[in-house]
Design a protein around this nucleic acid. Sequence first.
DNA 1: GCCCCAACTGTATGCGCATACATCCTTCCC
DNA 2: GGGAAGGATGTATGCGCATACAGTTGGGGC
Lengths: 377, 377
Amino acid sequence: MIGGGGMGAKATTVYDVAEHAGVSIATVSRVLRRPGDVRDSTRERVLASVKALGYVPSASARGLAARRTGVVGLFFPDFDAMRETTAFVPDRSGAVPVVADPPAEDATGSDLLYFDEVLRGAEIEAWRNGLVLLVGVGRGEDSLSIVSDIAGRVDGLAVLAGSVPDEMLEHIARRIPVVLIAGPRRDDEFDHVSVDNRAGMRALADHVFDTREIDGVLYVRGVASTPDDAERFDGFSEALSARAVADRPGLSVVSAEFSRERARVIGSSLASSGHIPDAVICANDQMALGILDAFRDHGVDVPRRVLVAGFDGIDAGRHSEPRLTTVEQPMEDLGRAAVHVLTQRLANPSQPPVTLRLPVKVLVRESTTPGPPTPRG
Amino acid sequence: MIGGGGMGAKATTVYDVAEHAGVSIATVSRVLRRPGDVRDSTRERVLASVKALGYVPSASARGLAARRTGVVGLFFPDFDAMRETTAFVPDRSGAVPVVADPPAEDATGSDLLYFDEVLRGAEIEAWRNGLVLLVGVGRGEDSLSIVSDIAGRVDGLAVLAGSVPDEMLEHIARRIPVVLIAGPRRDDEFDHVSVDNRAGMRALADHVFDTREIDGVLYVRGVASTPDDAERFDGFSEALSARAVADRPGLSVVSAEFSRERARVIGSSLASSGHIPDAVICANDQMALGILDAFRDHGVDVPRRVLVAGFDGIDAGRHSEPRLTTVEQPMEDLGRAAVHVLTQRLANPSQPPVTLRLPVKVLVRESTTPGPPTPRG
DNA sequence: GCCCCAACTGTATGCGCATACATCCTTCCC
DNA sequence: GGGAAGGATGTATGCGCATACAGTTGGGGC
């Protein structure tokens, strides 16, 4: 029986293959690990036995003996954690519903897409180095045991900064190399990979201020305790103070905690109070989209009445009306860079801590481009 | 030194912890595996040593001893394989480019997004079962060794149907359970998880034919050798033959191999020849988008002159002009179902092969909705 | 005060493979 | 044809943990 997989009859091992091929287990092992060390005729005989017996080497045993697993881990929190608490129940109904699907603005929760790209990059770079990628998603209180579990399975671990307490990171780092993704440069011994939040926001703000005369600007912060938010705000402040006092815009700052909905509320009260600034710059795209939502609802013309810009380069920003000017982060490269740094450290454990700053790019779109609107399509 | 991770000084083991805590390794193991079996005072002492020494259990050793890894694998091919052959080279330039980002139709290559959702579902279901997810992406000729490698690391493997030769699957299945995703019901011993392609396309075609009088219809196939394509075509044929001969549309069939570009070429020649059917139904969204591209270029009005529909529910179809009517596949549920089935089989290896058919949904959008165009935004 | 049982803890072993080292077999050269 | 230098293969061991089983301890009942 083919589908019986591994249970019941125990899986075949090197010993089985060795006996079947009439060689020692060392030879079997060599055929699989360093085929060149084995005579052609022997190798073929062993491979025939491997096929005949359906032999697949146990990575556990291999990892134990070789003291390395060939796996790198990627860990990030699931901001959307509470979404799926239900057990999976197969639905066997046969009817196919036919429903109208009216145009709607993009759903939120695009954080996951963010990770998807990082993950893809990590997988690519892992593959290029002959490694396999293990993904771990932290959910609530289990997070700690999950990271630890994963740490035991891999040769190196990439962790989204802030998703794991420092204490745990240090614990893990005593066993394997750890690289932090999207974290700030900190005064620690970890390797880091991140984007240049400060320079990106600086460039974005400069662009907005250069587009036309801005008397008042609103900066919408995210969660102030996060490094990303802090760095972006620094970049913004820098742009502001770089301008001559004469044409330096008046500044208001408010926080919407990276939430589209909260930003929408803020935008609404702004619009209905009539105190609309000349530009709104947000620490991420979700909040910028929330601002756009509110302004559209209140008939506030973007970009003619007010310029709006975000940060991240999420997909939804390419489909909004108007399309959103933003700072594009190289998500996939973040993932690649993380694994890249891990392999470097694995190859050379004693090298000093590395910090990679990936460059970003300002994408100018209609939300900060006054003038004749670009025709769609 | 914290960042030194695992190299050089060898990682701490149960033996170290046991000695530090003044107990035997069995007790250390029990503290981690079945805390209830150990006296409170002992447990606390051991845990203190674990923390003090930075102990993280080796999953390799654990897996070897316990004969299970606690990992499930997900394997799929990278259709976009040749994209990233370059090594990752960190870019350290400090300048932030500011570039205009004109509206553009979505890039292709959305296949990956397809997998992203499956992956997410698989991860969720794995987590719910106390498992970890290992992802493998097949690329070219390495694919075979990659699958085999992964098979050695996991307790069960979910594989996208068609991405691995049957021979290899059977080989692997002698060691661990294998579930095929999106494959057809076949006469084999594997477990299967797929969507109801036939019923979905049947419902889609019925919808199109019911929308208004269709005299001539073009069906655009994908790669005819794939099960998905075959099942969808069956569903389409079924819808056709279910109609009274009197109002059964004339049929043309052509293949664009699931490619947007090829479909665009087909659409162009159609438009310039003047032989435009009343409806075009495509075996996937990418091809439907290609048709839309061509018709737009040639000024053919969709949906007034011709109805167009696709299959898959990819994101780009929600942003096209007009938006694309399609059959939405529950990608995430596919991933969840696959892992669900795996856990079932792991729990009960002797159960008969399972086939799960997930329901689909027809999303009716403007590409098949004649009448006043829905205002955007 | 003694015995028995339950709750703990320790000892010993094997999981399946990689690999250092020993052994045996070829070739090749003088 | 003898021997040396590799080349090919076999032998023995340990990787770190889970666990069956043996051993120890502490109470409780009589």
